[in-house]
Amino acid sequence: MRFVDAPVILAIALVLGACAHSSRWANAPQAIEAGAVGSGNGQAANELVVLLPKANGSVGAVVVRSEGSATIVLDKPYAAARIAGAGRVQPLTYDADFAKKEFSATLAALPVRPITFLLYFLEGKDEFTPDSEREVERIFAEIAARPDPEISVIGHADAVGTMQYNDQLSLQRAQRVRVDLARRGIPGKYIEVAGRGKREPVVVHTAADAPEPMNRRVEIIVR
């Protein structure tokens, strides 16, 4: 493994860190189970985690665990943790511009985000609604714009019937759309199908088994 040139300041941190704490991490476990954190090489670390706002502006959370240290939850934009070794986790707030600059090459390599389309059928027919017909055109444009495009066709069902019945039904819907996309010129090898059954309704009713046309849909993800 190659070494990279380290700034002097980091080298100093290494020496100080190693002197002060080497004995503490000597026998850290290598397990990857939550809560049990592997370090084990008995030397200082310099690690950084920075939470970013999502593309849609919302923020999720990352939980940082290091053996011998309290769990830290990062849940605000640019909330960060610096890890100087097992059990040595310091929370901080990172500068947004600095984070973008420091991770610019990494962020630039993120693949284009997967995009989701919803297709609905004319009632009792095997044809798309006019709106969905236009969506199909957008799907083609999206596929053409992506490197190595992959397409997932995911069928959904409403709540009428058993879990097993709806798994089967939703998969059949997806397979029907796959055939249709293939006929329109998308090579079948790029398309995988799945049926989500009634697990992911768009419209939720109070009655557990209510019929709902909005939930009888096919979702297409272009990755």
Partner: peptide, 22 residues
């Protein structure tokens, strides 16, 4: 090498400085 991050629906960046961890 020194921590585990559990992901709860989000975007984030991580850096491990090998010159120090090795």
């Amino acid at each position: 090498p020194a921590a585990i991050m559990g992901v709860r629906g989000t975007e984030f960046v991580v850096k491990v400085d090998e010159s120090v961890t090795k």
